[in-house]
């Protein structure tokens, strides 16, 4: 490295750059899948630009204009009255429902994930938590802990693999269109995600505190309550707020299934062909998502600063 011209040294550096066969193969495979998709899919560009589709689009753009103003000159006062009436009649209530569903769902998910992350953490759900395995522990005991750990991890994977919308669709048949359906569907999916993140956080705990408490005879429950919870809480809260943002988005959309969040009125406007109201409610959805993002990033910023 020390000998040779600058060009030669750069050559050596280039050859010594970190390379990983698996990552390269994955990048190549990912690119291949994406290119192949365009060939394999049934994508009909000519249909998209056909006269029928263009007529649809023209009709849509016309219908988006607030209906009191259709066929007359644009008038801001009229548009304002129209928006205010829609907001007062349905928008405000639907926004409150949407937010309420997201808050309850993420809180439920957070509580459930607190419980589930413990038995799925490799260093906690084991015969000797936070310690090197001692020789001579019974095989049955080790097997038992492995079984607990693996089944919780499996349950968490299954929970987060089912998309919220799909879960809500299935739960709808059982509970009917009450807000609980949306709350439970969101809670299950997010508990799966938060549980995994929580388990990872426990596994990566930097301090020696759990090991010390264990060495003086602390039980697992004491470790969880007196060491893990206080030490990892800021991190877990970061994840909690980050997932709450997605919950706000999703609870809007779950209304499409018939639960009275914003999505319900979006679907209602679509089936009635009220395109102006459709776009208005979608815009309210944008507002609520932006408000949620701002609140969440404020909370996360506070947490980071306190840390």
């Amino acid at each position: 490295m020390k000998e040779g011209t600058a060009g030669e040294r750069i050559e050596v550096l280039w050859q010594e750059r970190p390379r990983d066969r698996f990552v390269r193969a994955s990048l190549l495979a990912g690119a291949t899948v994406m290119v192949a998709a365009w060939g394999l899919g049934d994508f009909d560009w000519s249909d998209l630009f056909s006269a029928r589709r263009q007529a649809n689009l023209a009709r849509f753009l016309e219908g988006v204009r607030p209906h009191p103003l259709q066929g007359v000159a644009w008038d801001w006062g009229g548009a304002w009255t129209w928006a205010r009436d829609l907001f007062a009649a349905r928008g405000a209530g639907a926004m409150a429902t949407t937010l309420g569903i997201s808050v309850l769902a993420i809180s439920l998910a957070g509580l459930v994930s607190l419980v589930l992350s413990l038995p799925s953490a490799r260093n906690f759900a084991t015969v000797d938590p936070f310690a090197a395995p001692r020789p001579g522990t019974s095989r049955g005991l080790r097997f038992g802990w492995a079984l607990i750990r693996r089944s919780t991890r499996g349950a968490l994977i299954a929970m987060r693999s089912i998309p919220e919308y799909l879960a809500a669709f299935l739960l709808l048949a059982i509970f009917g269109p009450t807000p609980w359906t949306a709350v439970l569907a969101l809670a299950v999916h997010n508990a799966g995600i938060l549980g995994r993140l929580g388990a990872e956080t426990i596994e990566n705990i930097p301090s020696r505190a759990p090991a010390s408490l264990r060495a003086i005879g602390g039980r697992r429950s004491q470790l969880a309550v007196w060491v893990l919870l206080p030490e990892l809480l800021p991190r877990l809260l970061l994840y909690f707020f980050y997932r709450w943002e997605t919950c706000v988005r999703e609870s809007t959309v779950l209304g499409l299934l018939g639960i009275v969040s914003l999505g319900f009125w979006i679907d209602d406007a679509r089936t009635r062909g009220h395109l102006d109201a459709l776009v208005f409610y979608v815009a309210l959805g944008v507002v609520i998502v932006i408000v949620g993002d701002l609140m969440s990033s404020l909370a996360r910023e506070l947490l980071r600063r306190a840390d």
Binding site: R249, V253, D267, G285, V286, D293
Partner: peptide, 9 residues
């Protein structure tokens, strides 16, 4: 800020 399902709608 607009969910993919709403874009689809």
């Amino acid at each position: 800020s607009v969910h993919e399902l709403l874009w689809a709608v």
